[in-house]
Design a protein around this nucleic acid. Structure first.
Lengths: 329, 329
DNA sequence: TATAATTATGCTCAAATTGAGTATAAATAG
DNA sequence: CTATTTATACTCAATTTGAGCATAATTATA
């Protein structure tokens, strides 16, 4: 048994590997991602922004993760916390870059978290964008997203009439019928919207000023970068529940409410305050600093993470109880 | 902000991408993986076996998953169930193949599950091996693995004396002190053993007959294939708990005990029978066939999976209660 | 200064889930 | 016929979860 090759011309050519990184932070209680607007302000018909990406150069970096960390350090001036490989995308016809020499480019997606929020914003053409600019249907913090009920579900039902085979997938991904909306299915939902032709990426890497907007709301990204971003969000939501990755998004000191707002931004749902507090306290990850933060009402206690425990230790019990759909008091 | 390249020589060269696949099945209540013994019986000094791998050819396959499915179909004659990309390994100096032309090879690991157990075994040099042949310390079904207590923990403690920075990682990965053994940390444990020099892979891809066995028990694989296999096992264990991937390892009909034995083979722990039964029944994934299977004692009811629900739907509640360490009645 | 509004924190309580059994049923082996 | 084996049903306490009420400590404002 062996994987054999009939035409070896494929191999001799070699491939390029791009590393594309979704760098995430939380600012103003919103999950944001760093994107680059190459032709910002240049013309009206500017292409959509993109994730920072660059070629992987095996001679210069021992591993891809080292590549990512070093690039981000040098180019963004940021030390990353959690860095995680997401997926290697090699789909033909899915906005993978093809170079002039006809070399295929495979793109490896990375998720990178930082807690450094005060880094140069207008220095170059890069900026922080709210993650839900790209996936408005994923944000349930203010109730059912308007675009979901008004646009997406009807459009999907129309599409399903011609594609009955996809019905079960769609039901599961979008929590239809008696099924629950699972916030981790970000990629599955994006893929379905893409297949159903409701996503504007089809026009994204050709210089069309304004895509014919029969699609669904949500900002586009170049190439397959929105897919990488969907993978990143889904992975972050999943990982959050059993590993303490949220800590890599927080500053040194924070209040429980701040922590909860970050969790809500990640998951795109509202959480029950008292239960969140109980769960966090039980997890034993926090240490009180003794200080308080004054704001509007009663001052909140400031916490920090327990020293030496930011490793990849299981965070049992961060399976957060959500009060999805409605903001609760 | 951009990832820039100083030396572009790196890029012009191009890279090769190998796809290596951990094909898993369950037979005789054991989780097995397909490996290839290239020089089987040739000489005494044969190299260790390897996973099936081959180059990814973007001109022939639209996606890598299609590649995997087609290769396995053609070469093994098996239709795969669940197929999942694991990780893309590009580490220098970590047994990544370098070709004669000095082209770097990046290897993409895949996990593939099959329920077809009766496929040619001696047809070529490939065979099924128990997964715990490669990771004996991961099998807790018969109590604490002997090699763990007798060899690994002492060796790690010695190693930690010179590498105190790794202490927290090791504690978490191996469940030392008050921490729990987490069966999902397969890769973390393997990586630590590798770093600590307790793994024989260092000798694996050079033709040394018998590696100087100061290491830890467990069969070697060529290149970085044992690392891929560790990733595969960890991912399978994790996924099992919240997605119904176990079904892709089962035959059309099976008993609850058979299902449990499969779950135990995956997780490497024993499970409480009555609670496993309760959990499975509640998940509503099974349908009785009305038939029974006669064996030793009381005949067991035969089940099949509910039609149309093998999709990637969440399997809430398969967070199995383990009676780790002891086989229970 | 008193009172309303706001935010944080403490506590309760029922429902659901989990962990660990006991009890009983239906077969085979001797 | 009896012991053994395996399957299945049921129980029960401990824990976890989901939801809410109650109280505390501030600021805003009348």
């Amino acid at each position: 048994m062996e994987y054999t090759s009939d035409s070896s011309s494929d191999i001799a050519n070699g491939l390029l590997i791009d590393i594309s990184t979704a760098i995430m932070r939380v600012s103003d209680n919103e999950l944001q991602c760093r994107v680059i607007d190459d032709d910002k302000g240049a013309r009206d018909a500017s292409p959509p922004p993109r994730l920072p990406f660059g070629p992987f150069m095996p001679n210069q970096h021992r591993t891809m993760e080292i590549s990512v960390r070093q690039w981000v350090r040098e180019q963004v001036g940021v030390d990353l916390g959690h860095v995680e490989q997401l997926y290697t995308f090699a789909d033909q016809g899915r906005h993978i870059r093809d170079t002039a020499k006809d070399q295929h480019v495979v793109s490896v997606g990375y998720l990178a978290l930082t807690n450094q929020v005060d880094i140069g914003d207008a220095r170059d053409k890069s900026m922080w964008r709210n993650i839900y600019d790209f996936f408005p249907w994923e944000d349930w913090r203010h109730g059912t997203p308007a675009c979901l009920a008004q646009l997406i579900i009807p459009a999907l039902e129309t599409w399903l009439a011609d594609n009955p085979d996809a019905a079960e997938r769609v039901r599961v991904a979008f929590g239809m019928d008696e099924l629950q909306w699972d916030e981790e299915f970000v990629l599955e939902r994006y893929e379905i919207l893409y297949e159903a032709g409701l996503i504007d990426e089809t026009f994204a890497d050709r210089r069309i000023a304004e895509p014919p907007h029969h699609g669904v709301p949500g900002a586009s990204l170049q190439l397959d970068h929105r897919r990488i971003l969907a993978t990143a969000l889904g992975r972050l939501r999943g990982k959050f529940k059993y590993r303490p990755v949220i800590f890599d998004l927080m500053r040194a000191q924070f209040t429980l409410t701040g922590l909860q707002k970050t969790a809500e931004a990640i998951l795109g749902v509202c959480l029950h305050k008292q239960n969140f507090r109980r769960m966090v306290e039980k997890s034993n990850f926090l240490v009180s600093t003794g200080k308080t933060e004054k704001a509007r009402g009663r001052p909140a206690e400031l916490f920090r993470f327990r020293h030496g425990q930011r490793a990849d230790r299981p965070l049992s019990g961060l399976r957060v109880s959500s009060s999805r759909g409605r903001a609760r008091r």
